[in-house]
Design a protein around this nucleic acid. Structure first.
Lengths: 197, 197
DNA sequence: GATAATACGGAGTGCCGCTCCGGTACGACC
DNA sequence: GGTCGTACCGGAGCGGCACTCCGTATTATC
């Protein structure tokens, strides 16, 4: 990564090294903690303690919990966009590429407990990093749906946003319900509902 | 313990009138508050204050928040069971009776913000009033699905539990997402997924 | 090395679901 | 109607949460 060229535009800029170091530590600690106990159960104070940093520092770097979560999940959201690009580039297209992508989306949401609800509210976060990234995911979902429609795989009136909503709902069920492994079955039902007829 | 004889001699343990009165007040206050702000946002202390009762009293009558919610939503859950019975009794059956019932279920869950998550976890509440009532709803759902299957309206492998899960997921989306009125559309998609083919 | 800008740390705030216990008032029995 | 045991009440209090404030330590600049 090259030195930020826009430094000249800011008179007293230059992020201090300790600030950058602490930010990295916080992200690492949060990422680990989210993996262990889920985003919902992870307490902000615990994230700070694990990073060896005071709570105040955590809150200065991330104005609220959603912002921290956005930072953590942002990368794998980008991964979803990349996967979509790969699937769209493959020719001939895999027969069930849409299903593969939705399954990946569900896995991503399910990975951290409590993500589904925040994901569903992402449209509120307009302007935030999470909001922007969710919009990117919506865009690739629309592209995937368009491609699947061209191939006659899904009904003509399905939108990318609807697909994401359905996937989010299934993911939410997976983390909310106690019965194990209903996800695949529910996805089957959903895909029967959206396929071309 | 051989104390049963002594307690048995006291006829019917006589619930004190103030206890009964306070319980009624609590249920009324909770019902009103849930209608206004939703079950999630309603604080237990507020329920108690509104009922003109100390917090301790509230917690003695209902050991946790879910128990209070169970009491409040119990009646309309019973209503769902009754609606199912009516739909099953009608002959000839309404062409889309299953859809009508699911829509009612979704409306019921959606009415109070935060109910969907608790509903999805209902199977944990085995033995509780809410758990029992949810099981009753699952039973009528199974009956409805069986009838719809006889009529060739839904696919043969659909279970009542799956139907409820799908309905819960749609209801959750309705309360979690910001976009208005996606519910009917998503139900359309779901019903296309579960219908006979 | 002095100085000002900047970030740090952690005590503090308000709210949550929930608990505990001293005191109150209810209802049974005489 | 009086008295008495006790079921019930009220509310202070607990631990944990997301989040804030401000005195202090660290950093970059000269």
């Amino acid at each position: 990564m090259s030195r930020e060229a826009a430094e000249g535009s800011r008179p007293h800029a230059a992020v201090r090294t300790d600030a950058r170091r602490n930010r990295a530590r916080l992200i690492e600690a949060a990422s680990a903690l989210f993996d262990e106990v889920g985003a919902d159960a992870a307490a902000m104070n615990d994230v700070a303690r694990r990073a060896g940093v005071g709570p105040g520092t955590l809150w200065r770097h991330f104005p609220n919990k959603d912002a921290l979560i956005a930072e953590i999940v942002g990368e794998s959201l980008d991964g979803l966009a990349n996967l979509a690009a790969d699937l769209l580039d493959t020719s001939p297209p895999e027969p069930d590429f849409l299903r593969r992508w939705v399954a990946a989306l569900v896995r991503h949401i399910t990975r951290h407990q409590g993500l589904a609800a925040r994901f569903a509210r992402a449209s509120e976060h307009v302007g935030s990093p999470l909001g922007a990234r969710c919009q990117a995911v919506e865009q690739v979902a629309a592209d995937l749906v368009a491609r699947a429609r061209e191939l006659g795989q899904v009904r003509g009136d399905l939108t990318g946003a609807e697909l994401i909503r359905l996937a989010t709902a299934v993911a939410w069920l997976d983390e909310a319900a106690t019965e194990p492994d209903t996800t695949a079955r529910l996805l089957d039902l959903v895909f029967d509902g959206i396929r071309a007829r």
